[in-house]
Structure formats: C-alpha cells, structure tokens
Write a protein that binds this DNA or RNA. Structure first.
Lengths: 246, 246
DNA sequence: CTGCCTCGTTGCATTCTGCGCAACCACCAT
DNA sequence: ATGGTGGTTGCGCAGAATGCAACGAGGCAG
C-alpha cells in the first residue's frame, strides 16, 4: 500500500533477526543502497535503529520502549500477572498467557518453569492455532460464523503425527474444547510437549485470553498433566473475575 | 528524510502512548485521514499495529517480537542478567543496566526492588546523562574529544537544585567519576533518590555498559547507599570478566 | 608508503508513489 | 426518516522517493 513504509518495516524485521550492514540490507530488499540508506536514516532519527561505530545497523531503543508501552496497554496482562506467577510457582511448569489479535494468536506473557523470571523468547510471535491449547481455547468461543471462517483460513501445517489437519476435524476439536471448557494439545505441536489451556473471560462474557500450562513428557505424563487441570481452571477463573467477569 | 516513513513511525510512537482512532491520529499528525488510513494499513499488514472490532488502533504484536529480538541481541544484557539479579537480591534495591547508543543513554534491564520480576517501565527510554549515575559512568570513559563533544551537546535541564548544569561543571564531574571508578547521582534527577553507578568493560577494555543501584532516601541515607559500593563494584567487575575483560 | 578495493555518502534528473480532495457508504442515535 | 459520525474508495496532480553515477573515506596488501 505504501512502498517506502513497507520497505522500512521490512528493514526493521530483518534487523530483528540480527544486525545488518547497508549493502547487506539493500541486497536483501533488492533495492538500491541509496534508498536503504535514507530509510535507515529516518528510522535512526526516531531511534528505531541505531548504528554502531562500524556502521552496522541494529534495532534501536525505541523498539523496547514501544514494546513496553504496548504490553502495559494490554490490561489483561497486568490483571493476570500475579495469578500466572502463582500458578507457575504452584505447578512448577511453564505458564503462557495468549490472546487473539488480528487473526493471529500471540503470547502476551510467559513464566518459565525454572526461573521466576520471564523469558521473552516467544512473546509477540504468532503461534499456530490448530495445534496449541491456547489457540483452540481462543477459537472455540468465537461465534459460529467467525469460528468457521477462521478454521477455513488456517494453515494446517502438520507439525507431528498427532497434529489435527483440515477444518472439519479442527471444528470438531473446537466443539469438544468449548463443551468441556478447556483445551488440550497432546503432542500436536511438538511431540514431546503436552499443553492444557483454559479460557479467561472479561466483563463482556467473551473469551479475552487463554492461560496454558506446557509440560515436557520427560517431566510429567499425560495423566499427570491432566491432574493439573483444577489448578489451571481455578487460575483462569480468578483472572476472569479480576477482569470483571461475573 | 523520508516523509511517509517518518509519519508511519510517528503513528507508532503515538500508539505507544495509547490506542487511537483514525480521525484522532489524523488530527494529531495533521494529515488527511486517507493518508493515515493507508499508512496504518501498511503497518497492519506487518502486525506493527492491529485494529480491534471498534476500529481502534493499537500497537501490534510485532512490537513485542522485535523488542524481544533486540534485547536478545544485546549480549551484554544476557551476560549481566544473573549478576544483576544477585545484586538486587543481596541489596534489596533497584538495579539498572544501561548503555550508550546513538548519543543516548538507555536502560537495557531493570530489577525492581520489591519483586524478583523485571518491570519494563523505563527500559528503552532515553535517560538524561548529566544527572544519572549511569550516564556519568558511561560518559566518563569516552576519549577526551568525544567526551567534550558529548558534554557540549547535552541539554542541561535542571531537574533539582543539585543538578549539575553546564558543560564545564559536568566535565569536572566526569573527571571525578573516571578517577574514582564510580558515579554518583545525589538527588540530581529526583530530589529523593540517590544512585551509584559502576562501569562494565568488555574485551576491548572500553566501558560497554553501566550498572547502578537506586535508593529512595526514605529507605537509606546517602552514607548507607555508599556502603553498598563494594557490592556494586564487585558485581560490575564480575560482569566485566564474564564479558571478556581482563 | 602507495595504490587498490570496499563501502558509505551526496547531487541530480526522472518518475512513480503517496497525497488530498470529494464523493460514497455504513452505522448509530435522534 | 434524518442528520451525524467515522471509515473507505477513485482519481488527478505534485512532490517525494528512487536509482544512477560520481565522489570520498577507510582499510589492507603489496
């Protein structure tokens, strides 16, 4: 739609994968280096990128700044934080908070199993929806029409032999998820991981987010993971109430 | 340099302050809403912004994603993390890690006094250099010429009655900082805060980052803060060694 | 020390992109 | 119905962004 802006964003994305040099970036975008230079200058003025002494470009501090602001704007994240921390501590497993935005499912927060500290590895990165507990939970509550549309539009990449492929099977899985009130990823994304997810509802009654626990099978078998369900559902309920759901 | 890109970035920055509507953003930028619409569409395509059902625009998940990537690219942050956590725990005070990038001083990490969890409040936001311990430490080690140039270029805003104003006084302060090997902000930014900062050096021997402790005066008086110096310097030394400094 | 090579930078002419206008729609409240 | 608000589209024009080519700086090897 807007060429130069598109190119500038592309530059940011590439820099997200690692620092880059002018020529390298120009080659990557397949545009003249003059153009890239000027785009980068504009980005630099606003601290979206910065250059070190060796003229290598990096993502600039404005990226952090924006991300911090954006995360703070997701009130659900702040509301959920203490409950997630508690759940993580109680179960000793990895906890995720996810939402659906613009047709994508992204993680807003993550509490890692080992440390009490948040790892930012996957926060903000879109996750597949057909093979994650959080994805299923978020889609399951959509109104019939939207849900069908979403299911049709997905890319049913087969990650493992358990991955659900195709809209029909997936819609049935969503049905099941909605009925019992929680979602399961039984090695459908990564063979060795089991995840369970539960819905968080806000004051409007709609599912606003989902919480999940992810456990590698070397730590707990499927039965043992399912035994954590009450705690997960309890947490999701608490967050829902804190978010205004009655 | 590049008009449309500049406007697009401006949009992102405004959205960082809070969600916005098309008309509102157009009015803010003082451009036609058509233009804003198209810019936003480009941003939306790449997930830099997203629209909710009410057509309000928010920062999109790509912001988180980039920030995560950018933070991971600052190796010094990963190297320092465990030492900072330990320092925070040992002292019970707020710990910051800061670097100088593109003429600005920004915080890369922060461990809050109360919780063991990182607050993202000020991460990525440029901080004044003339009245912060970290700023002083980072400038103090610059080669003569650069240091002088930097000191000349600063905006000596008087935050408190203790704020150093003017290049001459500040250069003297940098001199002192360099000589004794640590920096002090004695209520120069906020009247009620005392901060001490120490340099982190990398394999090249140059100061690559700075660590600081910030303490409100209701918690500890200046003398007591200075008593934390050995721990701070020890931590900075450990990080330096972990970063390859010999 | 010198000359080559790489990589960043600048001035300029061309043209295509991004702009604003105005009209159109859809939705809501009155 | 009706006016109002807020989002969207088609179009023609102007200026912004682009690519070229020449320049310059820094590093490395001979």
């Amino acid at each position: 739609m807007s060429q130069s802006v598109g190119r500038a964003l592309e530059l940011l994305i590439r820099l997200g994968e690692g620092p880059g040099t002018l020529d390298g970036l120009a080659a990557g975008l397949d545009v003249h280096k003059t153009t890239v230079l000027r785009l980068l200058r504009t980005l630099e003025e606003q601290r979206f990128v910065y250059r070190d002494q060796q003229h290598r470009y990096h993502l600039g501090s404005r990226s952090f700044e924006l991300a911090g602001a954006a995360l703070e704007q997701r009130e659900i994240r702040a509301t959920a934080a203490p409950f997630l921390a508690r759940l993580g501590e109680a179960t000793g497993q990895t906890v995720h908070l996810g939402v659906r935005e613009g047709g994508e499912v992204v993680y807003l927060d993550k509490y890692d199993a080992r440390t009490p500290i948040r790892m930012y590895s996957r926060i903000g990165r879109p996750m597949p929806q057909h093979c994650t507990a959080i994805g299923k939970v978020l889609l399951a509550d959509l109104p019939e029409k939207e849900r069908r549309a979403a299911a049709e539009a997905l890319d049913y990449r087969r990650f493992t032999e358990h991955t659900v492929t195709g809209p029909a099977a997936f819609l049935a899985e969503l049905e099941r998820t909605a009925r019992r009130g929680w979602g399961l990823d039984d090695g459908e994304h990564e063979t060795f991981m089991t995840c369970i997810g539960a819905p968080v509802r806000d004051a409007t009654g709609a599912v606003a987010a989902a919480v999940s626990l992810s456990v590698p099978d070397v730590v707990l078998g499927r039965e043992d993971v399912l035994a954590l369900l009450p705690q997960l559902l309890e947490t999701a309920g608490e967050i829902s109430r804190a978010a205004g759901y009655r």
